[in-house]
Design a binder for these strands. Structure first.
Lengths: 334, 334
DNA sequence: CTGAAAGCGCTAACAC
DNA sequence: GTGTTAGCGCTTTCAG
């Protein structure tokens, strides 16, 4: 009863109140044997009474396992959030809790956030990490790691990705099939393999259809709405603007639609737009897009990670990408 | 070069490599003054070379501030995720990073997860906490805390909530205006004030319209899809089933629609359904619902928390709730 | 069966 | 200017 007023109750408070040593309390809590039943019961009583919970921080400094899986993202945007949902439901009923960390919210420099986050948490706060869209090659770390939408292709560390090339081709072919000939591309984050693959798919589709590739029709959106605003604007203000746009992700596509409207263009009548990802917002925007099974990708990452924690080697999983036609695409007018 | 192979690089590795003491490295990293420029430069060089990042865990054990805001949720479901998005964008450009923790993923017992999470992280891993739908009254803690959709009403600790009563009334009145007379209610998590308010709003609307309240038409969904399955089933298998359902949240509403379909009922022709929250999935489900400004609520929680961190007292914010009519509601047939 | 002591990585007095 | 020391809350040998 003599503990400092508004502070956490620590293992020492419990020890004092139960009249035993700190070490004994630790043993009781962790179910180590070699403790008298009476002592154990008394300590447990005090724990309940005081509402003691061991500090994750202190515990993790001393111990190897924390039973916490880390999900490292740059920021909490829809793509990462959907993955997180998949991770969360896959981990339901296991021993693991989830800790999601957005490491580049504060830092101005986006590049390298994952290395920073990993170092900061990897001490041993987390047993394993799922890293979403890392900007750089991951360092060989002590902590088990799987990357979703990796920086490089499926090599080295475990990865989960999508058939980005095929998806992008399908998206572009859809526009071509509708009769579009001047098709622009809002590129993704070029440091990511996914963005390069999507651009590649776009170019392959053009080439297969015998359409010329016009560098002026490719602009950078970096997967972000803010970056896509000037990109889309530049496209629409071209002397000979495109009749269709394939954006590297939904956020860019939705922004392109917004920009088109401010230019007095109607979608899909004056401009067709296709995205990539199929985040929940794509449905509200009535956006034709390429669906990535985000939920399943999160779950797959969990499965691989748990296997790695169990001793298996890294694994690479590629998910199918499938086009979902909604109302943002139509044949070009006359 | 003689450090243990696959381990994190620690402050001691840096100190050794730079030929200085651990304390000096710490001072350099934290920009304390009283260090020779030459020493500082040398240490910084080693830090860069070795790729050293201070351990968040170790730092937080010794320090007061970590510049990390914790968002504590039971699990990562759509409601919490939307809030998280609001929190994330509100924190963009500040000094704070975000750590979201789902504390009842592993633990079977859902009740009290927030106290557990808070104790575990509150050591000082986080400077402040935003707790989403706490199940119990929050303990007076050392760490600044704001609750979103609190257990009790706006009292005690800082809170952000919605006009649940008004929203529920509006939802029920919408059904009544369409001519429904037998309107059921799938109740939310009764330990939350929001669920009680929504039921209250439902009953008030019935009463104001002179409709009888039938206890058989109120079932428990606990805000979860799994729990809502039997609840909705019971409703539809009643001798005299309802023609409309007001569900306490969108997850329950969407599940009710699914169950209705498996019973061969068409929505909205045979059964009208209204939800609450307006999560992104509500749009895909074409669900009439009551919109909570989730994004803004997350941002509001951030604002209050930052003010509290700056020394202000707790605050209570109530957001408006607004009905959004989509395709899941229509006048009853015949 | 229980306790004393060491130490995880780091920071904050306080010496030198 | 820089190093030494103590200690955050906890777990883990190792003595008693």
């Amino acid at each position: 009863m003599t503990r400092r007023p508004s502070s956490r109750v620590t293992i020492r408070d419990v020890a004092r109140a139960a009249g035993v040593s700190v070490a004994t309390v630790s043993k009781v809590i962790n179910g180590r044997d070699g403790i008298a039943d009476a002592t154990s019961a008394r300590v447990l009583g005090v724990v309940a009474e005081l509402g003691y919970e061991s500090s994750l921080i202190a515990t993790s400094m001393r111990r190897r396992r924390t039973n916490v899986i880390g999900v490292l993202v740059a920021e909490f945007e829809p793509f990462a959030l959907q993955l997180l949902r998949g991770v969360s439901s896959a981990l339901q009923g296991t021993d693991y809790d989830i800790l999601a960390y957005a490491g580049s919210v504060s830092a101005g420099d986006h590049s390298g956030w994952e290395r920073r986050s990993l170092s900061r948490l990897g001490g041993t706060l987390i047993d394993g990490a799922i890293i979403v869209t890392p900007t750089v090659a991951l360092p060989e770390t002590s902590v088990a790691t799987v990357a979703i939408d990796p920086h490089a292709g499926p090599a080295g560390p475990a990865t989960v990705d999508t058939d980005n090339l095929g998806g992008a081709r399908a998206a572009t072919e859809h526009l071509i099939a509708q009769g579009h000939r001047r098709i622009a591309h809002i590129r993704g984050r070029v440091d990511l393999e996914s963005a390069r693959q999507r651009e590649q798919g776009y170019r392959q589709a053009l080439e297969a259809a015998g359409l010329p590739f016009d560098p002026a029709l490719v602009v950078d959106g970096a997967y972000r709405a803010a970056t896509s605003t000037p990109a889309a604007t530049a496209l629409l203000e071209l002397p000979e603007p495109p009749t269709a746009v394939f954006a590297a992700n939904d956020l860019s596509a939705i922004e392109a639609i917004r920009v088109a409207r401010t230019h007095g263009l109607r979608v899909p009548d004056d401009l067709s737009v296709v995205g990539f990802d199929d985040i929940p917002e794509a449905v509200s925007a009535d956006l034709t897009t390429v669906r990535q099974p985000l939920h399943e990708m999160g779950a797959a990452a969990v499965r691989i990670l748990l296997e790695m924690l169990g001793g298996s080697g890294p694994e690479h999983i590629r998910m199918p990408a499938e086009i979902v036609v909604r109302g943002s695409t139509a044949p070009p007018r006359g």
